[in-house]
Design a protein around this nucleic acid. Sequence first.
DNA 1: CAAGAACATGGATAAAAATACAGCGTGCGC
DNA 2: GCGCACGCTGTATTTTTATCCATGTTCTTG
Lengths: 205, 205
Amino acid sequence: MKLTARQQEILDYLHAEHRQSGIMPSTREIQEHFGFASQTAAVSHLRALEKKGAIVKKDRKARSLIFADAADREPIVDVPIYGAIPAGYSDDTTPEADGTLSVDVRSMGLDERSKAYALKVRGESMIEAHIMDGDHVVLEYREPRDQDIVAALIDGETTLKRYVNNGRKPFLKAENPDFPDLIPAQELLIQGVMVGLVRGASRRW
Amino acid sequence: MKLTARQQEILDYLHAEHRQSGIMPSTREIQEHFGFASQTAAVSHLRALEKKGAIVKKDRKARSLIFADAADREPIVDVPIYGAIPAGYSDDTTPEADGTLSVDVRSMGLDERSKAYALKVRGESMIEAHIMDGDHVVLEYREPRDQDIVAALIDGETTLKRYVNNGRKPFLKAENPDFPDLIPAQELLIQGVMVGLVRGASRRW
DNA sequence: CAAGAACATGGATAAAAATACAGCGTGCGC
DNA sequence: GCGCACGCTGTATTTTTATCCATGTTCTTG
């Protein structure tokens, strides 16, 4: 169903207000903003918007409208970005984060409950897996499977490697011919499994 | 300032409710959820949370609390994902989107006003720029600069190419030796400039 | 042209929600 | 042992807000 121009205006106002202040306008605030002489004007517009499926309202509650597309939108998780993960990391101590990255659950295939985190990639050791210097890699805590890309603690530093488990002893492998490292995986602390990647602007590619 | 255990419980409840339903609980709803006999209990907790800086309240408004960290968090934009952009695209007609991608403004360096969109990458023509098949590329409408990666309309299909403008005639270049195409850029419709990349899970790398 | 949708006014009502005030017990630091 | 933050009860008041009814104007559209 298509919205009329006026209805789109109302919807835009709702969006703008909600984005800016975080709370939904009440009918009176809509009325005042548009200069309506009566609340009914605002109410009937909201009703029209609801009928056309643009918003969803819960009855008899203050400011209880939500945008229809927000209702079925994938939730967003804020994953903390760590420059590096210190050695004795346990669940209680939260290492200091260099900001957060917000990603929607679906595009990463994340589980909302699993504590994910992001790591800023340094160096070119995974360049052949098309992971560049400066990329942010999103990781999850879980058991690695064969060919997963994992974050591992090597010599007190966290680095990204491919986890290979082909029946024999599992080992870690860099994706760069300059790093022909084959490191037995048992002795190492696997700190996470890569589930996604975010490459931002402000860089050259 | 540290929160007490009870205050953290209240804050968690607020977070959970807000994430799930999109609207903030009122004092009565808090009261009922925790089984308080009086609204004042909820109110005083909210006051404590506000004093400690966990939430921000606007006076005399229903459901007008917002989380303090949400107030200064980077805004999130929902960029539509297009499989391909049709030829005669104009600002009025919105091509159908294959879902949306939510990214925070800062990590992409996006301008919130500029209408960004995402494109699902097909094929390996940009593999040497480390853009893989299945990646989602985020693009902005603006003039391309030298060495930018752009989406261009070639033979009715949208493809990703590197824009090269070294003083002479600008042209487009694929980042794959199997695609040695040099296409004069003038004759083509540049549909966007790459500003970021999101690589999701549910694929092998 | 009739019918309906969209858009608006004016006034009224009741539910929902924030706010206020007066207490009470417990633990903690000084 | 005094003050103070914390967590809560109980009652009352005021503001905010959603909702309803009756009515009128302009469009569009079959």
